[in-house]
Write a protein that binds this DNA or RNA. Structure first.
Length: 575
RNA sequence: CGGGAUGUAGCGCAGCCCGGUAGCGCGCUUCGUUCGGGACGAAGAGGCCGCAAGUUCGAAUCUUGUCAUCCCGACCA
């Protein structure tokens, strides 16, 4: 490929609506172009990176005996009605009607299609286990896409589905998939991706992991214990609370005029939020019924855990006078009947704390759960905090980071095989439901994520395994006949040797050429110029500036190939 | 779905308050001089000012509506 023929203008400045580095660089470098909200076209360099990643995904899936298949993007609504998700999923699932008025959906994930494909083909236990996967377009009508390719509505995804006849076999395969994912991220040049425990969300199932690339622009919050290696999405992280024992005091109602927030009340009563009880109000989405969470004043509610506990979607409450509660003075004692109340474990071991009295301008001091409220159920509902206690090793070592979810793996169980009636005949002549796992990686998000953590001010620094090209030949002063002749030859020789090479043969100033080359992020660069030819050499350097050498213009191919192989080897897993 | 903002040339922006048929920088075309980290000069091309109604002799500019996009939040296999 010659840069002179490459479609796509590279910009000096990023468009105004770019908010993160990877997005700005991928737009500036003409990798992608926005078509609409959360929908992008790819120019050649972007498409080549996607293809490289897809090939790595394909090789790694094949390595764990995956069978590549393809499901449709557009599916009949009836297929999704079988699993129940046609109705249970919100408007992220894009529904529409065909010319006959039949409900159709755009595939946002393909469990239904996978079961539909497999259920008639695998009727005997002897046909298990197997895994099928595809690399294909998904569409999710995200309420808010953002950050270029980090979160889009249309995207390419590798999704894999495995089918098993026992939980043990699923777990065996799940471990293989886990290792496969580690290999994939290493090969894509981001070995620092970590697996974290996650909440299973709408996918169902129990055990799941998300693969996270830690970066400040990440949308997920990750809880990590550097001491023992515990890692979890904060949605799924346990919050261990320790309360210092203190003297039990009598319950006392105190006048706290106008003191509504925890901070105000604690200042007013000269105590610390750690000795108080906070009420957080929610309403169920289905009927707006009130749910109150009580927890220690300094903690925050983990809403995912709350949803899982009460089995309903909730939103922050909009308090109205007819609810019969006094916002700002809500406490566990003396609440009106008929409100769902849940208590966080943090309250259980508090001997004496401040809480609302359910009466305007009054709080209680010296409250004790066991004495003043009797037997109540406690649940773990608080968010883990920086410096908090690790649920595994017990040290005060918890750190909180941001991460981008670049992949995930789920143990689905029989949710889909049961609802869609996929059965096989087992060796004991009984019909059973296969147990499923599913495994996803978003290609575009991975590209953006790699760019986000592998770039400098001038552009991306693509790992050689996914770079659009391995080598860029830059001909400086290509109007010089000698430069033109040598650069053409370098390009041809490398191409013939099977090297992925792009050649900037434009007669432009060095500054523009180098800037464009930086934006293309090709990991190795060969500069042909009158200056270098004068000393009988080609300049050979890496994009990340870690390497620089001279090449012999008459004999350079082997050296270039050796360097490429060395760089690939550095990103190849050992096992 | 709440809150905020913006739509003027491929990109970045000015003009709008105070109506008179559009301007700057980058990029693009041609010629010349330059050219190892985004060069200079000269001459050009490119826009029914998001769309639609209204007010007006006249609308990028005022009014209303509508669509789109972005940011924050809610939401998110």
């Amino acid at each position: 490929m010659k840069v002179s023929a490459l479609l796509g203008e590279r910009f000096k400045k990023a468009p105004a609506d770019c908010t993160i580095d990877s997005q700005a660089l991928m737009v500036r470098g003409a990798y992608i172009k926005s078509v609409g909200t959360g929908v992008f076209s790819f120019f050649m360099p972007g498409k080549r990176i996607a293809k490289k990643i897809e090939n790595i995904l394909r090789e790694e899936m094949d390595r764990i005996d995956g069978q590549e298949v393809m499901f449709p993007v557009v599916m009949p609504g009836t297929l999704w009605q079988e699993s129940g998700r046609f109705n249970s999923i919100g408007s992220e699932l894009l529904r529409f009607k065909d010319r006959n008025g039949v409900d159709m959906v755009l595939g946002m994930t393909h469990e239904e299609a996978a079961v539909q494909l497999a259920r008639d083909a695998a009727k005997s236990y002897t046909q298990f286990p197997f895994m099928i996967y595809q690399i294909q377009t998904k569409f999710r009508d995200e309420p808010r896409s953002r950050g270029g390719l980090i979160r889009t509505r249309e995207f390419t995804m590798k999704d894999a589905y495995s089918f098993h006849t026992s939980q043990e076999d699923l777990e065996r395969y799940y471990a293989l998939a886990y290792r496969s994912y580690e290999r994939i991220f290493t090969r894509c040049g981001v070995p620092e991706v970590v697996a974290v425990k996650s909440d299973s969300g709408m996918m169902g199932g129990r055990i799941s992991h998300e693969f996270m690339l830690l970066t400040d622009i990440g949308e997920d919050t990750i809880v990590i214990c550097p001491e023992c290696g515990y890692r979890s999405n904060s949605e799924a992280a346990d919050c261990i609370v320790h309360n210092e024992p203190c003297a039990i005091e009598p319950l006392e109602e105190v006048h706290t005029p106008g003191q509504k927030t925890i901070e105000e009340v604690c200042n007013f009563l000269h105590t610390d939020p750690i000795n108080s009880c906070k009420a957080v109000l929610y309403q169920r989405n289905m009927d707006d019924s009130l749910v109150i969470v009580f927890l220690r004043g300094d903690l925050e509610v983990n809403e995912t855990k709350l949803r899982n506990l009460i089995g309903a979607e909730v939103h922050a409450a909009n308090v109205t006078p007819d609810m019969g509660i006094c916002a700002g003075f809500i406490g566990p004692k003396g609440l009106p009947e008929g409100i769902t109340v849940v208590y966080d474990e943090s309250l259980k071991t508090m001997n004496s704390f401040v809480a609302g009295a359910n009466k305007v301008d009054y709080h209680y001091k010296g409250m004790n759960m066991a004495r003043d409220l009797g037997e109540v159920e406690y649940a773990s509902l608080a968010k883990a905090t920086e410096g908090g206690i690790c649920p595994v090793c017990g040290k005060h070592s918890i750190t909180i980071s941001r991460g981008i979810e670049v992949g995930n793996i789920f143990q689905l169980g029989t949710k889909y095989t049961e609802s869609m009636n996929m059965q096989y005949l087992d060796s004991d002549n009984t019909l059973k439901y296969p147990i499923m796992g599913c495994y996803g990686i978003g290609v575009g998000r991975l590209i953006a994520s790699v760019c986000q953590v592998r770039h400098d001010d001038n552009g991306p620094i693509w790992p050689i395994t996914i770079a659009p090209w391995q080598v860029e030949v830059c001909a400086l002063k290509v109007g010089d006949e000698n430069v033109r002749r040598v650069a053409d030859k370098v390009y041809d020789d490398l191409k013939k040797a099977g090297v992925e090479v792009i050649y900037d043969d434009r007669n432009i100033s060095a500054g523009v050429m180098f800037s464009d080359a930086d934006l293309l992020g090709v990991p190795l660069r060969i500069v042909v110029s009158p200056r270098s030819l004068e000393r009988g050499a080609l300049e050979f350097a890496s994009r990340d500036k870690s390497f620089k050498a001279d090449l012999n213009p008459d004999n350079f191919v082997d050296e270039v190939k050796a360097k490429i192989n060395e760089m690939i080897a550095a990103l190849t897993p050992e096992d």
